[in-house]
Computed example of a mutant assay.
Amino acid sequence: MFYRPENGHGLPHNPFNAIVSPRPIGWISTRGAGGAENLAPYSFFNAVAYEPPQVMFASTSAKEDRGDTKDSVANIRETGVFCVNIVEFGARDAMNETSGPWAKEEDEFSKAGVERADCTEIACSRVASAPANLECRVRQIVKLEGANNFAVFGEVVGVHIREDCLVDGIFDVTRFNPLARMGYRDYAVVRDVFALKRPGEA
Score class of each variant (00 low, 15 high):
R66Y: 01
A94Q: 08
A40C: 10
E145L: 05
N75K: 02
A103G: 05
I141P: 02
E115I: 00
I76C: 03
V138M: 04
G146L: 08
Q54H: 14
A188H: 03
E51L: 13
P22Q: 03
D164E: 13
K70V: 04
M182K: 08
R162H: 02
V193C: 06
N17M: 14
N85F: 02
Q54I: 14
V138Y: 05
K104I: 03
S72Y: 12
H13M: 15
L11M: 11
L179M: 04
R116T: 08
E155W: 03
G100A: 11
A180H: 14
V81E: 09
G90Y: 08
D186I: 12
E51F: 08
G146C: 11
D93K: 10
L144F: 12
S59P: 01
N133V: 04
H9F: 06
A188G: 07
I28P: 08
A151Q: 11
N17R: 14
R31W: 01
R175E: 02
S43G: 02
G169I: 02
E51P: 10
A36C: 11
T69W: 06
V173A: 07
P101V: 04
G32H: 13
A195S: 15
E37M: 07
C124G: 11
M95G: 00
S61M: 13
Y187P: 10
I141Y: 03
S29M: 05
Y50I: 08
E135C: 12
H160V: 05
T120Y: 04
Y50H: 13
E6T: 12
C119T: 00
G80I: 03
D68C: 02
E135N: 03
Y184P: 07
E163C: 05
V156I: 12
H13A: 15
T79P: 05
R116Q: 06
N7H: 04
L11R: 08
R23S: 01
C165I: 03
L196M: 09
Q54V: 14
D186G: 09
N46I: 09
R162E: 10
E37H: 05
D68E: 14
D164Q: 09
N133E: 06
T69L: 12
N38Q: 10
D172T: 08
V142T: 14
F2Q: 15
T120L: 06
V156R: 05
E64G: 09
T174F: 15
A151M: 13
Y184S: 09
R116G: 07
W102L: 13
L134R: 01
G183P: 12
D68P: 13
K143Y: 12
W102Y: 02
R23H: 00
L39T: 03
F171I: 06
R31F: 09
A33N: 15
I19V: 07
A128M: 08
V189T: 07
E201G: 00
K197H: 15
V189R: 02
A36Y: 04
V48P: 05
F89L: 07
D71G: 00
A94T: 09
S59H: 06
H13I: 15
I19Y: 10
L134V: 12
H9P: 11
P5C: 13
F16I: 14
G200F: 01
G80E: 07
C119I: 09
V114M: 11
I76A: 10
K143T: 03
T120E: 13
